[in-house]
Amino acid sequence: MVTKVIKGFKREIRPCILKVMPYCVMSYYFMEVLYSLVNGHLVGRERAIVMDVTDVFGYIYTCFDVLLTIVAIFLILATRKEASGVTLLLIGRVIHRLFFSIWTVFFYFLFNDSLDVGSLLMLMAAKIKLRDEKEWSHTERSKYQLLLLGGRLCLCSLFIMWMDENVETMFSIVSMVLLLFISVGFHCKLSAYLTVVALLYHDVFSNHWSMLWGWNDRLLSMQYFSLLFCKIGGVLMLSELGGGKWSIDGFRNRNGEKWDKKGNYRIVKGQAPA
Rank of each mutant, 00 (worst) to 15 (best):
V5Y: 07
I13G: 07
V20Q: 01
V20G: 03
M21R: 03
M21N: 03
C24R: 00
M26C: 13
S27G: 10
L42A: 14
G44P: 11
G44V: 09
M51N: 07
I60Q: 11
T62E: 11
C63F: 12
L67G: 03
I70A: 11
I73E: 00
F74P: 03
A78T: 06
T79H: 04
R80L: 05
G85A: 15
L88R: 01
G92A: 09
R93C: 13
R93Y: 04
H96Y: 13
L98E: 07
W103S: 11
V105W: 13
F107E: 09
L110R: 08
N112F: 02
D113Y: 12
V117S: 02
G118W: 04
G118K: 06
L123A: 01
A125V: 08
A125L: 13
K127D: 00
R131D: 09
D132R: 15
E135T: 15
H138T: 13
L146F: 05
L147G: 03
L155W: 08
D164F: 12
N166W: 06
N166K: 14
S172W: 02
L179P: 02
L180F: 10
S183F: 14
S183W: 06
G185A: 14
H187V: 06
C188D: 00
A192F: 03
Y193N: 01
Y193F: 15
Y193K: 04
T195H: 06
V197N: 05
L200M: 11
H202I: 00
N207K: 09
H208L: 12
W209G: 00
S210Y: 15
S210R: 06
M211P: 00
N216I: 10
R218Y: 04
L219N: 13
L220S: 06
F225P: 00
F225A: 07
S226H: 04
L227E: 08
C230Y: 02
C230Q: 10
I232G: 00
L236N: 02
G242P: 05
G243C: 14
S247R: 11
I248A: 11
R252T: 05
K261Y: 05
G263S: 15
G270P: 10
Q271F: 13
A272H: 04
A272G: 00
A274R: 10
